[in-house]
Amino acid sequence: MTSLPGGSGQGGSTTEPRPFVCARCGALAGDSQPATWTCSVENGTRQYFCDVCSRENLRAIEGRLDSAWW
């Protein structure tokens, strides 16, 4: 199990799960990250990209360019 930094990893949070939203096009994925989506940490913030946006920007992602550059 992987936990967020500073967390106990035991849940205990009363907040509801937030839906995954593509940081590029705004597509919604529901409460769990689909296997085809990409997660990127930029400036300490996790950003998720749908499979379409990930495919369209594969070279920039592999080159580790921040999404602001694509």
Rank of each mutant, 00 (worst) to 15 (best):
T2C: 11
S3M: 12
L4V: 13
P5R: 13
S8V: 08
S8K: 10
Q10N: 13
G12I: 03
G12H: 05
G12K: 08
G12N: 10
S13P: 00
S13C: 13
S13M: 10
T15A: 03
T15Y: 03
P17L: 11
R18D: 04
R18G: 06
P19K: 10
V21S: 02
A23Q: 05
A23F: 00
A23Y: 05
A27C: 02
A27T: 07
A27I: 02
A27F: 01
L28V: 12
A29S: 14
G30Q: 10
D31K: 02
D31L: 08
D31V: 01
S32Q: 12
Q33W: 00
Q33D: 00
P34L: 11
P34G: 11
P34K: 09
W37G: 06
W37H: 06
W37D: 04
T38D: 07
T38F: 11
C39I: 11
C39Y: 05
C39P: 00
S40T: 07
V41I: 15
V41R: 14
E42F: 05
N43M: 12
G44E: 12
T45F: 12
T45W: 08
R46W: 09
R46P: 06
Y48F: 15
Y48A: 12
Y48C: 14
F49R: 03
C50V: 10
C50T: 09
D51Q: 15
D51P: 00
V52F: 04
C53I: 03
C53V: 01
S54H: 13
L58I: 09
L58K: 14
R59N: 15
A60K: 12
A60Y: 09
A60V: 00
E62V: 11
E62Y: 08
E62C: 09
E62F: 10
L65M: 13
D66I: 00
S67L: 04
S67Q: 06
S67V: 01
A68R: 14
W70P: 00
